[in-house]
Amino acid sequence: MSTLSLQDVEKIALLARLYLTPEEKAKYQQQLSDVLTYVEQLSELDLDGVPPQAHAVAQQNIMREDEVNSTIPINKALGNAAATADDQFAIQAVFDE
């Protein structure tokens, strides 16, 4: 049974650029702890002698040749943007603190 501290939740929220109310922090503390507890069931498996794997499917070396085929026009590129200027995405500047 895992329990995340309130500080853990605040750290995760900061990294994800989420601003949480005290109520939300308490709610997510419980929910995230439940998720970890659920995933923890995996540690019941006996994995001695099984090498670590980066990928679930036994595939390797999936590559493409260096060819151009997927560039999209600018009106499509900017189609979903909330705001644009000079053919660029316009956003609020990001500052620390």
Binding site: Q88, F89, I91, Q92, A93, V94
Partner: peptide, 11 residues
């Protein structure tokens, strides 16, 4: 970064 506080992004 623009002087009005916005930033423009070119990908």
């Amino acid at each position: 970064h623009l002087s009005d506080g916005r930033s423009l992004v070119d990908y």
